[in-house]
């Protein structure tokens, strides 16, 4: 069993500047922020390294940080330019009974990162969901399609500046 500080030190010694920051356990769970383009290597290490053995990806969630510049157009419709979207990986080791949260932030204009599907199989559908609702692209994903919404849906509904369409296939959407 390792505490978050020890896990952070291990990662830091292995990946140096690609491991950015350790956020303390209060008020949320302890969280390690890493470089989005190195997520695959780091995940691989977290999973295969004997003293870490993170064998389970409990949850993979997308978040819209909405920290970009908010612009209102003439009709009062707000769009967000710049800023980031984040992905949180909640990892657990059944073997060693410790857990950690990994966070990456990708630019909103080009939200791309690498898939961890080859490391934890369950990431497959989680990543499809994050793609479906936030438009985050997971490179190397074997089958990156929408999972919940219909294939012909426009836009990514959980982004903070999403505009609900007026019609979908001839059905009026707003109340």
């Amino acid at each position: 069993m390792k505490n978050p500080e020890e896990i952070f030190e291990l990662l830091k010694s292995k990946f140096a500047e690609d491991v950015l920051e350790l956020k303390p356990a209060q008020p949320l769970d302890a969280m390690i922020v890493v470089n989005p383009l190195k997520i695959k290597e780091i995940s691989n290490y977290l999973c295969s390294e004997e003293s870490l053995s993170f064998d389970t990806l409990m949850c993979l969630s997308g978040v819209d940080d909405a920290n970009g510049e908010k612009v209102k157009d003439g009709n009062g419709i707000e769009t967000i330019n710049g800023g980031t979207l984040s992905i949180y990986y909640h990892l657990d080791s059944i073997k060693l009974r410790h857990k950690i949260t990994i966070k990456i932030s990708v630019p909103r204009d080009n939200p791309e990162t690498y898939s961890v599907e080859s490391i934890w199989k369950c990431a497959d559908w989680h990543e499809r969901e994050a793609y479906d609702l936030f438009g985050i692209k997971f490179l190397d994903h074997p089958d990156l399609r929408r999972i919940l919404l219909p294939d012909d849906w426009d836009g990514f509904p959980l982004r903070k500046d999403y505009q609900v369409p007026e019609f979908y296939l001839g059905m009026k959407v707003p109340y």
């Binding site: 509904p157 609900v164 059905m171 707003p174 109340y175």
Partner: peptide, 15 residues
Amino acid sequence: YWEHGYHVLKGIDRV
């Protein structure tokens, strides 16, 4: 879901 349900049909009688 009447207000924020982007994915919900607001009444089956629309269909």
